[in-house]
């Protein structure tokens, strides 16, 4: 490994040996963040979505080196079983986690939206999730789940 990548993953500072041509997706999975999924490796399906400096991005078309000194949030970093993130809880409550493969990316895209826009319209939710393919649910329920999580995150429910 020819260089050391300093990143903060889910709040923990890390020094990770990487090659300069390695994809961020591959490095994250190697480091044990298995919630980052590999569905197409061509920047389309969105299952590898993470938050890089609080922005949802597709880690399969970014080089790990691009993340130097950045903060990364993966699905593992946003909730626990006892205290799930409101979006995680909403996805469970709405019954919209089927095979689950798209869900980490979908939830992080939703988090990116709600962190910046606590009271989105349905169209804004649709736009925020437009980079995450799902073949199981038909999306409607997931859109509903994000809308349901919004007031919880605003502290209203």
């Amino acid at each position: 490994m020819s260089q050391i990548l300093h990143v903060i993953i889910n709040g923990t500072s890390k020094e990770i040996p990487i090659e300069p041509d390695e994809l961020l997706l591959d490095v994250l999975r190697r480091e044990g963040y298995k919630g980052v999924k590999r569905g197409c490796k061509e920047g389309t399906c969105g299952t590898c979505t993470i938050l890089l400096n609080d922005k949802a991005v597709k880690s399969c078309i970014l080089l790990a080196a691009q993340a130097k000194n950045c903060s990364i949030i993966t699905i593992e970093g946003i909730g626990t079983r006892d205290n799930p993130h409101p979006i995680q809880q909403a996805f469970v409550d709405e019954g919209v986690v089927q095979c689950g493969f798209c869900i980490p990316g979908m939830i992080l895209s939703a988090k990116n939206l709600l962190d910046n826009n606590p009271n989105p319209t349905k169209d804004e939710v649709k736009m925020a999730l437009d980079g995450n393919l799902c073949r199981c649910t038909g999306y409607s329920g997931q859109i509903k789940a994000v809308l349901a999580a919004a007031p919880v995150m605003r502290g209203e429910k």
């Binding site: 919630g35 079983r81 995680q88 019954g95």
Partner: peptide
């Protein structure tokens, strides 16, 4: 009754549950 799907929360938490998630 729409009881919660058994694996939903674990999947939503990104637990390593798929074929490739075991090293």
């Amino acid at each position: 009754k729409s009881v919660p799907k058994k694996d939903a929360l674990s999947l939503a938490m990104g637990k390593p549950m798929y074929t490739d998630d075991k090293d």
